[in-house]
């Protein structure tokens, strides 16, 4: 069927566009990783094993600003919980079992979810998910290595402004998420709480304290009405 072929080709094309743009971010992660005090192997291991950008930036950011490895790991894990929610939404759509599920889980990230979740059927959903996820995985790991090796050879990261680039990376990750007033208020409150906590807690802890803001805002803001057709 020509239309099926066309639909699939369109999904592949869109997915590759997103994946190529995203995969190159690894360049900045590699550079920031070694600037934060990790060696090239540790920086590359993060991209291979953790493979979820915001968590990776969080771990090296917390370590780079003097936080303990434990605080860095906890921050990375908390940021990683959003992938669990993506998984819940994607599981019935993708319908993977066994080793396919074990493999798919590794490339379950922001972009592979976004390029798959709106597809009308399983075939197109899998095409978008795998094209995006696998392309980003390959590019992200290659560009991490290039960024880390280059960052290590370029000398003092402060002279290059790489310490300042970490804040910009977090802001660029945050920016598209500020879509509603509640989310914007959460961001401002979390920022104020973290700034206050910097003066009284060890490095790395202020970010974890700010996670409490998410809990508070969720409890205090009115809940969405429950879906009407709730099964007994």
């Amino acid at each position: 069927m020509g239309t099926d072929q066309d639909a699939r080709r369109a999904v592949v094309r869109d997915s590759l566009g997103v994946a190529i743009a995203t995969g190159t971010y690894g360049l900045s992660f590699g550079a920031v990783g070694v600037a934060s005090g990790l060696d090239v192997a540790q920086t590359c291991a993060l991209s291979l094993v953790m493979f979820t950008g915001a968590s990776q930036f969080a771990l090296v950011g917390v370590l780079g600003s003097g936080g303990t490895p434990l605080a860095g790991a906890l921050t990375a894990l908390l940021l990683g919980t959003r992938n669990t929610l993506y998984g819940l939404r994607m599981a019935p759509l993708l319908g993977y079992r066994g080793w396919r599920r074990l493999t798919a889980a590794h490339v379950l990230i922001d972009e592979s979810t976004a390029m798959s979740v709106t597809r009308p059927d399983r075939d197109l959903a899998r095409t978008g998910f795998l094209t995006t996820g696998l392309t980003i995985f390959v590019l992200w790991n290659l560009t991490t290595l290039v960024g880390a090796v280059a960052g290590e050879r370029l000398g003092d990261p402060r002279d290059l402004g790489l310490d300042a680039a970490v804040g910009a990376a977090f802001l660029a990750l945050l920016w598209p998420r500020l879509s509603t007033p509640v989310l914007r208020v959460t961001a401002v409150l979390a920022s104020l709480v973290a700034a206050g906590a910097v003066t009284v807690t060890p490095a790395g802890v202020p970010v974890l304290v700010a996670a409490g803001v998410a809990v508070l805002v969720a409890v205090l803001t009115p809940r969405r009405p429950p879906p009407p057709e709730e099964a007994p």
Binding site: A54, F57, A58, G61, V62, S65, G66, T75, L78, L79, T81, R82, T84, L85, A164, V166, G167, F170, L171, L173, L174, R177, L178, V182, L183, T186, A187, V188, L189, A190, S191, V193, A194, A195, V198, T199, V200, P202, A203, P206, V207, V209, A210, A211, V213, A214, V215, V217, A218, V219, T221, R223, R224, P226
Partner: peptide, 30 residues
């Protein structure tokens, strides 16, 4: 629903806190 809302807000709270700490915390700490 409460768990889902918290999970929705956590990335925003953490990323905003990370921006603040990265930019404003003194390198010597506290």
């Amino acid at each position: 629903p409460l768990v889902a809302r918290i999970a929705d807000l956590i990335p925003v709270a953490l990323l905003a806190a990370l921006v603040t700490v990265q930019v404003l915390a003194a390198p010597e700490g506290r």
